[in-house]
Design a protein around this nucleic acid. Structure first.
Lengths: 238, 238
DNA sequence: TCAAAAGTGTTTCGGGTACACCCATGT
DNA sequence: ACATGGGTGTACCCGAAACACTTTTGA
């Protein structure tokens, strides 16, 4: 690649080698088994048959986030409730084929397996893996996943993104379990409820969830109330 | 990754356009005029003569952070005390010449104008601008600067990076002023001193700074004490 | 009637915040 | 002696944390 100008379809030329640029996504979901991550099985070399993060090449006239959304839609068809850039990984040898720089994103999904997970595009298969049963990943995707996990832990306390992992209506117990899983520590039920409710960003519905045990009231995250509060300098913190 | 590997003759080739990849750095310094940012005047089209962030192209076998350090050294010769990846900007039209994706970094420097700021490499000139007298910047560098400023504000409270903006020995007043500038709010002197000292990460030296008024004791940031404390689950927070 | 999960108050403790005066030096 | 910045202690308040029993349902 030291041949100076590597003509792409773009019409100008720099006297520099051009790395390939990809996007990769760490998609988190939350269910019975706690936190899960969506992986795809590679259908091609290198690392054929191994599990990897969904992702692919950025197109010529496409923003980075757009590319992430497109690839994710092509490979899995999921509907995202949250997507944010994570970090850019560019170690010279991270791809055995040559220089590939990847802009990593992390995303949240409200329900596991909304549509019965299709695997199209480059992916030979797509599957949710819960934390703890994660396989070895292709490339440096294991590192990327680790960074994403840390970011999620760090962010969930300061921004109301936890709700993006739950269905529209949820019980306070579900919310608490989510926080316990993400933060990896136990929380006190009464303190948690008091704190969450005192924020004034949950709307109490009339719906109840029934199942074993006493029925539980369902709540909804009130985006508007949150936006208003935030504009007034309110800080989330949980 | 649809047709991932179309083998080309030399090394490898993807059937995708390749954007150019650059790094850009927001370098912060702290002095009499508060917070300052280092800018370079562009010597080439586009935006000739305009001020911009120091930066340049990533080389073929060079990590992203290495590229940032190299460019900064070439253009300004500064010694950095802190450098961290910030965000990657890749809007399709951010560079009028074609697709250029830039990985932005932000850096801290202990003293303004350590060596009498050289401007070499692509830079026609290099100069510190204090906040408030910032000129219009080339490309989307104004946005990048804004994101960096936010990150600095957010991070300074949770990680001891404020010290990286001060000389090795500093007074508590200097530290307080730094925090007031970065956070953009006044702090109570007594509370600030109590809090900082209670963290146990400052080493009290026997040196005093003399000047108008009563002499002030000089302190040093104790990296080791911090590392030990952090390993014990201590959280910085100021 | 039993198992399962939901729901509910009070006390204690520590850290955050507000606040005003004396001290050491240079001019 | 005066101007300049450095340095110090206390009282109050609020939010965090600890802690156990009653309620409602389905089986």
């Amino acid at each position: 690649m030291s041949d100076a100008a590597n003509e792409g379809p773009s019409s100008f030329t720099y006297a520099w080698p051009r790395p390939a640029v990809t996007v990769d996504c760490v998609v988190f979901g939350f269910g019975e088994d706690g936190l899960s991550v969506l992986l795809v099985r590679r259908g091609e070399e290198p690392f054929v048959g191994q599990w990897a993060l969904p992702g692919g090449f950025v197109r010529e006239k496409e923003g980075l986030e757009d590319a992430a959304r497109r690839e994710l839609d092509e490979e899995t068809g999921l509907t995202l409730s949250f997507l944010e850039q994570l970090y850019t990984f560019g170690a010279p040898a991270r791809d055995p084929r040559g220089r590939v720089i990847t802009v990593a994103f992390y995303a949240l999904v409200k329900e596991l397996a909304q549509p019965p997970l299709r695997a199209t595009g480059d992916a030979a298969a797509a599957k949710w893996f819960s934390e703890g049963e994660l396989p070895d990943l292709a490339f440096d995707h294991g590192d990327i996943l680790g960074v994403a996990r840390e970011r999620l832990r760090g962010k969930v306390r300061w921004q109301p993104i936890g709700f993006e992992l739950l269905p529209e209506l949820f019980t306070l117990s579900a919310l608490q379990t989510l926080y316990e899983v993400v933060l990896e520590r136990q929380l006190d039920k009464r303190n948690f409820r008091r704190k969450v409710l005192s924020l004034g960003i949950l709307e109490e519905t009339q719906e109840m969830r029934r199942g074993p045990g006493r029925p539980a009231r369902l709540y909804r995250f009130d985006k508007d109330a949150y936006a208003r509060a935030e504009a007034d300098g309110f800080v989330f913190e949980l």
